[in-house]
Structure formats: structure tokens, C-alpha cells
């Protein structure tokens, strides 16, 4: 049974197939509105993530399907001590496909190993969040018309930001990618990602603490939040947080066709004054996330022989 647990579960060709489907859905939404008639998506959210859950649910409704599930662990059978494996087996009897969010790393894989229907990882702790990466890829593709030959800047918390690691992983398979890593010393990209992903795929990268100096090179700027709780002391946090806040002034030397992405939610790392700049793509990114989830649900249901 085919599932999506890690973005690398799909080949470059398969990712392109999803992007093509998503683009076709955007162009002809009416021809998709009945594709999943009578099918059910189970959203099993063992920790709350309203944004991701609603994106999956909206995706399934727009395909003409139905949704069952729960939004937090305490309203699920896990609260009674049921294992992930058993939950997956039971839900397989009720639904056609599962989207699972779980605080523990690897839980969706356990579900996929035990379910008889496809499982989509909707986020497992700090580990993977492949459908966010699908949203990122479609955004880049629609903005730039390609996923290769791009200089991609990642700014903010590169140490704990799973969306950053996942997108770097996904982009590592395309030609001509250059990566620019912009973060405080404390939140640099972990060395295993540099070694196992960037160096292993011969992807040139630079590391800097200074956004301004690298801004003119960037085709994509992927912003993330610098969180207070990542710092040992308040002083360091206060000293650093403002250097990684994007304001209209900081874009003075950026390319005209820069695309600014952010996985959201945003707190203050992108000034609201940028929202009207045509280079701001983060709200489109949310919309594209829904279309990629639709494309993904279609692909997995088709491969499972359920549509």
C-alpha cells in the first residue's frame, strides 16, 4: 500500500505529476468536484493543528468526498491506551485514506505499516511534514516555472525547523540548486543535514548571519520563525530576534522577482507591511497546500484502487 511518510518517498517524476495535477485542479476545479464521491478521509490528529487539518478536510470536500476523524488525542481511543497500530487497523475498516498528525516521531510510519489504506503523514513531532513541502514546491514552481537552477535562501531557525530540512531534502534532487543559510549562530542548520544532504548531493551552500549581504542573490527567501523558547537566555533572544525580521526596508537590494515563502503561522518575523508586496507568496502558499493535498489524495486513492 502506497503512503506518504517522507517527501523522499516520492520520486522527482512523481512530485512533478502531483504539481501537474494541482495545476490542472487550479485551472479546472469543476472537473474534480466529484472525483472522490463516496470516499472518506480520516483525519487522525493526535495533537491539534487546526490549519493542517482544515487544509486536508477542505481538500477532501472539494473532491466531493467526506471526512471523519478527531482533532486531538483526548477525544480519540489513544486516550484509552490504544496503540497506533491498532488505531490504523480499525480506521482502515471505516475510511479510504488516513491523514495522521502525531506528536511522536515515526507514528505515521507505524500506522502505514499496519493500515490497509494509504496513510499521509500530516506532521510527526519535529521529524517530517511532507505535505508542507508539497505546498512549498508548488509555490516555487508556480512562481518560477521550475524547481531547478534556483538560489534558495533559508532564514531564521534552521536548527529545529523541520520544514526547512524537508524542503532542502526535496530540492537536493534538482539540478543547479544553490542554498544560502541565514541564521544566528545558535540556530544554524545541523551538521548532519549539511553533510548527508547538501555535501552528499554536491549542492553549493553558504552560511551567514547577515541577510542583507546575500539578499541580491536570492530567487527564493524561505522565512521561519525564531522562537523565544529556542534560546537559553532572554538577552540572546532579544539581541537576535530583530535581525531576522523581514521589513520593506530590508528588501531594498532584493531581486524584483524574489519569492518570499513562510510555512506560517507567522508571529512577527515578516512585517505585515510586506503582505501587499507582489513578492510575498505565503498566503498563496496556504492555498497551494490545499491543491497539493487534493492531488495527493487523488494519487494515493487511485494507486490503492479506491477511485
Amino acid at each position: 500500500m502506497r503512503s506518504l511518510i517522507d517527501i523522499l518517498d516520492f520520486s522527482v517524476d512523481e512530485l512533478q505529476e502531483l504539481i501537474d495535477t494541482a495545476n490542472d485542479i487550479i485551472a479546472h476545479p469543476e472537473s474534480y468536484s466529484e472525483r472522490c464521491r463516496g470516499r472518506k478521509l480520516a483525519t487522525l490528529f493526535f495533537e491539534p493543528s487546526t490549519r493542517t487539518r482544515l487544509s486536508f478536510e477542505a481538500a477532501m470536500y472539494e473532491l466531493g468526498g467526506n471526512v471523519i476523524g478527531f482533532a486531538e488525542a483526548k477525544s480519540s481511543s489513544a486516550a484509552k491506551g490504544e496503540s497506533v497500530a491498532d488505531t490504523a487497523r480499525v480506521i482502515s475498516c471505516y475510511a479510504d485514506i488516513i491523514a495522521m498528525r502525531h506528536p511522536k516521531e515515526g507514528a505515521p510510519l507505524v500506522a502505514a505499516m499496519n493500515a490497509s489504506i494509504p496513510v499521509i503523514n500530516a506532521g510527526d513531532g519535529g521529524h517530517n511534514h511532507p505535505t508542507q513541502t508539497l505546498a512549498d514546491l508548488l509555490t516555487i514552481y508556480r512562481e518560477k516555472g521550475r524547481l531547478d537552477h534556483l538560489t534558495v535562501g533559508f532564514c531564521g531557525d534552521l536548527k529545529f525547523g523541520r520544514t526547512v530540512h524537508s524542503l532542502i531534502n526535496a530540492l537536493s534532487r534538482y539540478e543547479g540548486i544553490k542554498v544560502v543559510l541565514i541564521s544566528p549562530e545558535e540556530l544554524k542548520l545541523p551538521s548532519y543535514v549539511k553533510k548527508d544532504v547538501l555535501a552528499a548531493n554536491n549542492i553549493p551552500y553558504v552560511q551567514t548571519t547577515d541577510l542583507e549581504s546575500v539578499m541580491p542573490e536570492l530567487d527564493i527567501l524561505y522565512m521561519t520563525r525564531v522562537q523565544r523558547e529556542r534560546f537559553f537566555n532572554e538577552e540572546d533572544y532579544l539581541r537576535l530576534k530583530d535581525s531576522y525580521i523581514l521589513t520593506p526596508e530590508r528588501l531594498w537590494n532584493a531581486k524584483e522577482d524574489l519569492s518570499i515563502l513562510h510555512p506560517l503561522p507567522r508571529v512577527n518575523e515578516i512585517s505585515v507591511a510586506i503582505d501587499d508586496d507582489p513578492r510575498a507568496c505565503y498566503f498563496k502558499q496556504v492555498l497551494y497546500g490545499k491543491y497539493m493535498r487534493m492531488a495527493l489524495i487523488l494519487k494515493l486513492l487511485k494507486e490503492a484502487g479506491r477511485i
Binding site: 497506533v84 497500530a85 502525531h102 516521531e105 515515526g106 507505524v110 521529524h127
Partner: peptide
């Protein structure tokens, strides 16, 4: 040994 791993809470895995 990762305390965030699913194996840390599901003993039978």
C-alpha cells in the same frame, strides 16, 4: 533512545 520517538511510548513496537 530518542525520547520523542514513537518507540518510547509504544512498548510492543
Amino acid at each position: 533512545k530518542n525520547p520523542r520517538c514513537i518507540t518510547s511510548t509504544e512498548q510492543e513496537l
